[in-house]
């Protein structure tokens, strides 16, 4: 193995440990932490790791502080960003059960997220509860919303307005979700 290859192999190992294993309350690692551990060429290390993960249907996801995806990020923006490993493709409904999600809870999450997106990122909790109550039993609605908040998908302010939180930004392709929902043909119930 060439010296250069060995250099990157050891860096990729280190990056894998940092990214896969939970280090903080929130999953993922900040750019500055990676720079400290891997050196200033950490974006290149992550690029190689991302290519390597492609075959396993995983990816290195970058979430910028600015909420929106940045086309050509500066080093400062990368340092402040959060890097996580997420699934590259999608799960089948059967697989969701394996990771602990009931179909009702996941449908509720999908409805809450898409409603908030359509309301420009902010919607009153009562309104979301009303929407969910249509298809979920009343006693479950509040519990589910609190669960989405606890997991980091939604956040709530003191005036009971719901917003999308960090986990939605990491895990959900918002544009794709809205497009898919609008394009989908309704199946007969």
């Amino acid at each position: 193995m060439s010296k250069r290859k060995a250099y990157y192999a050891s860096k990729i190992k280190r990056a894998t440990h940092m990214l896969f294993y939970k280090r903080h309350k929130k999953p993922g690692v900040k750019g500055w932490e990676l720079r400290k551990a891997l050196g200033s060429d950490y974006p290149k290390v992550l690029k190689i790791l991302d290519d390597y993960l492609k075959g396993m249907d995983l990816q290195v996801k970058t979430v910028f502080e600015e909420e929106k995806q940045v086309e050509k990020p500066s080093l400062e923006q990368l340092d402040r960003a959060r890097f996580c490993i997420t699934l590259r493709g999608d799960l089948t409904p059967k697989e969701t059960k394996m990771i602990g999600w009931r179909i009702d809870d996941l449908a509720g999450l999908a409805i809450a997220i898409s409603h908030i997106i359509s309301k420009r990122g902010k919607a009153p909790r009562k309104e979301v509860e009303e929407l969910l109550r249509d298809k979920l039993p009343g006693w479950k609605v509040g519990i589910n919303i609190d669960r989405y908040i606890r997991y980091g998908y939604l956040t709530q302010d003191e005036s009971e307005q719901l917003y999308l939180d960090w986990r939605t930004r990491v895990e959900v392709d918002q544009k794709a979700l809205v497009d898919l929902l609008l394009r989908s043909e309704n199946k007969v119930q």
């Binding site: 996801k61 799960l91 895990e171 959900v172 392709d173 794709a176 979700l177």
Partner: peptide
């Protein structure tokens, strides 16, 4: 939703 969701 599953088509747009890539869990961590």
């Amino acid at each position: 939703f599953l088509k747009a969701w890539h869990p961590t």
